[in-house]
Design a protein around this nucleic acid. Structure first.
Length: 272
DNA sequence: AGTGCGACCCGAACGC
DNA sequence: TGCGTTCGGGTCGCAC
């Protein structure tokens, strides 16, 4: 279940493995995964090479000479580098073969991930990237920024934290953890948060995301990022998926509720 | 404009 | 080797 920390781990790992390898062939085994024209996607990748890998929120941005390959892993997308001779697995949907006999394979059991190949000059008008809000690590992410963004919002803060146009990259797991850190009830109306509470959200987001990236991400189910790097941040989770277990602070049971249709974990005693 | 919700997927968990 | 149903997760598109 990759979130921003997993995406960052994948970015760093792949950068060491696939830059400057010439692309020989591209196989699309599940065409709906490609948002742009599939034939053009294949044609434009062949004979090019990845020269850098960037990230914006949960989007991976593979830079080529004249294009960007945008990739969103959603819940279960993973990249693996394998020898081209290896058998293609059931859930491997996109195979990018290099001239050195290796493949970059995109594996996704749920088929939820998406890829898009765009011309470089089109990045500025690509909405999925441009509408991303501030990264948790951005200095501009301050309590006054959040106060402005939350102003007049009637939705519960938990739902608003998942809005990628405000803070880019916070997913369900980290939203739960940030609210626990900030001692804020997930149902509290976003527009009613105080400056102090916004400050705690900033600090929590920065601290939790930094730590999660350091640890290689979170492992829920069997998620393994590319090349066998396993996230260890799961051990640090305080409330997510901990329904019924004692709160690390007050030892009262963690509760699981639905907020905006999404599973939400919190301590009703600490997060009033 | 802001909000709510179904659709997209399919393996796991659950109910009987 | 039980089998049908429900759930979850991020994002988009559509309805209101």
């Amino acid at each position: 279940m990759p979130e921003i920390a997993e995406v960052e781990t994948v970015r760093q790992t792949l950068k060491k493995q696939i830059l400057h390898k010439k692309i020989k062939d591209v196989k699309i085994l599940y065409a709906k995964m490609i948002e742009s024209d599939v034939k053009t996607f294949v044609k434009d990748l062949i004979n090019d090479e990845f020269i850098d890998i960037k990230r914006r929120g949960k989007w991976l941005i593979f830079e080529l000479h004249n294009h960007y390959l945008l990739s969103h892993l959603r819940m279960e997308g993973k990249f693996f580098l394998k020898n081209s001779t290896e058998e293609i697995l059931k859930h491997e949907h996109i195979i990018i073969s290099f001239t050195d006999g290796t493949d970059l394979r995109y594996h996704d059991t749920r088929k939820f991930g998406r890829m898009n190949l765009i011309k470089k000059e089109d990045l500025e008008k690509t909405e999925s990237i441009q509408k991303q809000g501030l990264e948790p690590g951005d200095k501009a992410l301050t309590s006054s920024y959040l106060l402005t963004k939350f102003h007049h919002k009637k939705l519960p803060i938990k739902s608003v934290l998942l809005d990628q146009t405000i803070i880019s990259g916070l997913g369900n797991i980290y939203a739960n953890e940030v609210l626990f850190y900030a001692k804020i009830n997930p149902l509290k109306e976003a527009g009613k948060l105080t400056a102090n509470e916004c400050e705690l959200i900033c600090k929590g987001a920065k601290e939790i995301i930094t730590e999660a990236i350091k640890m290689g991400g979170t492992t829920i189910k069997s998620y393994t990022s590319s090349l066998g790097v396993t996230g260890r941040f799961q051990q640090k989770l305080k409330v997510h998926k901990k329904a019924g277990q004692p709160c690390p602070t007050c030892h009262k049971p963690i509760q699981n509720i639905k907020v905006g249709g999404r599973s939400t974990y919190y301590c009703p005693n600490c997060q009033r």
